[in-house]
Design a protein around this nucleic acid. Structure first.
Length: 153
DNA sequence: GCCAACGTTGGC
DNA sequence: GCCAACGTTGGC
């Protein structure tokens, strides 16, 4: 079982939206590294932290979700009216994948990026390493547990 | 809105 | 395969 951190801009889709929806697909990934993680590493039962990016003062980790369906083609790549169409993707051989995630819980507060940055125990997180722009990244089990503990404290 | 740091594209 | 130009991410 693996652990992940997944970023989304809350004005596009937030933890509250996921709480309402229960289950939703994580669409719009147009980065090959993330696509490959979806394809090769994401398994049903994996846990992921929901991270709000580009959110002013509320940038940070906001809740927990669970992977509940493994990788399948992202329908938005074939939808010209969507925010993420890819005219070069082929129906017979889709370029981009999505996974389904299920709402597990929302933290009572946002564990902010600045808190994470100022915690020396978290200096190894991909999240705070220079130049990392991946919107989905793996976490160690210890990192996942530490972040959750810190968020609910 | 700015811009640093990446990733992608495409001509050669 | 190189690399310039362009696009994207995401914190500030």
């Amino acid at each position: 079982m693996k652990y992940w951190l997944m970023k989304c801009e809350p004005h596009e889709y937030s933890i509250d939206d996921l709480e309402k929806d229960g289950v939703e697909k994580w669409t719009g990934i147009r980065n090959y590294q993330v696509r490959n993680m979806f394809r090769d590493e994401f398994k049903v039962g994996d846990l992921a932290l929901f991270y709000h990016s580009n959110a002013g003062k509320e940038i940070g980790v906001v809740g927990i979700m669970e992977v509940c369906k493994e990788a399948y083609p992202d329908p938005l790549q074939f939808d010209k009216k969507s925010a993420h169409p890819d005219p070069k993707s082929d129906l017979a051989n889709p370029r981009w994948l999505t996974v389904d995630v299920k709402f597990i819980g929302k933290f009572p507060r946002t564990l902010t990026l600045s808190e994470i940055k100022s915690d020396s125990k978290l200096a190894n997180l991909h999240l705070v390493q220079k130049g990392n722009r991946l919107s989905v990244m793996p976490l160690l089990k210890t990192e996942f547990n530490y972040l959750v503990k810190k968020a609910i404290k």
